[in-house]
């Protein structure tokens, strides 16, 4: 399986993602934002970080960069595109997934482990994951998912909510919502579910000794689903 990780000026989780993808069997290539052609890929990842210093709105500049034209075409023709954290912010700015990510409700940068409940398994990202609840890491200032009432109805009707913030038992309550996201949303799909944007970082959870192992579950499962 081939993957590509796009590096924007200000990306800082691109190498972590590279390490994670390779650890679970992907042949990964790093792709510079100013390139115009995407290498042949089974998965494209927009990594976390602070592309263009979060100027204007997080992800807005990166969403207009040269490589993104190819990424958007790739996604529109059914290619698997995953945006993590700043990558999610870039995805919403391209319009590939609905909604926006606002400043966290209590205005603080949040950096901690959270639990997320998988809301939909009818997709290549979470199909066959052996656990309903995963422990991931979040680190963001703008992760407060927001969309219009019409958009929310549409994404709920189409089962586009991928994961929701919860407690360790999978209970979804306001108190387990770290950033004020509508409906505790931590990640969403496009309509066809080949594009996934999520705030939590699975690539930070691939080593039991360092952090946790739920990212390993995610990546092992992902590469199996793509085979």
């Amino acid at each position: 399986m081939k993957s590509s990780v796009i590096t924007f000026p200000g990306s800082n989780c691109d190498r972590d993602m590279d390490v994670a993808l390779k650890k679970f069997g992907f042949k990964n290539k790093m792709v510079w934002h100013a390139d115009t052609e995407l290498p042949k890929s089974d998965l494209v990842v927009l990594p976390g970080g602070f592309s263009y210093g979060d100027y204007l709105r997080c992800g807005s500049m990166a969403s207009k960069s040269k490589i993104m034209k190819s990424v958007i075409n790739f996604a529109n023709s059914g290619g698997m595109v995953m945006g993590i954290c700043n990558g999610f912010q870039i995805l919403v700015e391209t319009g590939l997934v609905p909604g926006v990510l606002l400043r966290n409700k209590y205005l603080e940068f949040i950096c901690k482990n959270v639990f997320v409940k998988i809301n939909d398994k009818q997709n290549k990202y979470f199909k066959n994951v052996s656990s309903e609840v995963l422990e991931f890491h979040i680190a963001h200032n703008e992760g407060n998912y927001f969309c219009t009432d019409n958009q929310l109805k549409e994404i709920e009707d189409n089962n586009q909510i991928a994961i929701k913030y919860c407690d360790e038992n999978g209970k979804i309550e306001d108190e387990f919502n770290p950033n004020g996201s509508i409906k505790n949303i931590a990640g969403i799909f496009n309509r066809e579910k080949n594009v996934l944007g999520m705030m939590p970082h699975p690539e930070r959870m691939i080593d039991k000794c360092l952090s946790g192992d739920d990212g390993s579950l995610f990546f092992k499962n992902l590469i199996n689903n793509l085979k």
Binding site: L56, R57, S60, G99, V100, F146, T148
Partner: peptide, 9 residues
């Protein structure tokens, strides 16, 4: 429309 504003919000 294309860059300065995000018309969702």
């Amino acid at each position: 429309k294309k860059l300065l504003a995000n018309l969702v919000i």
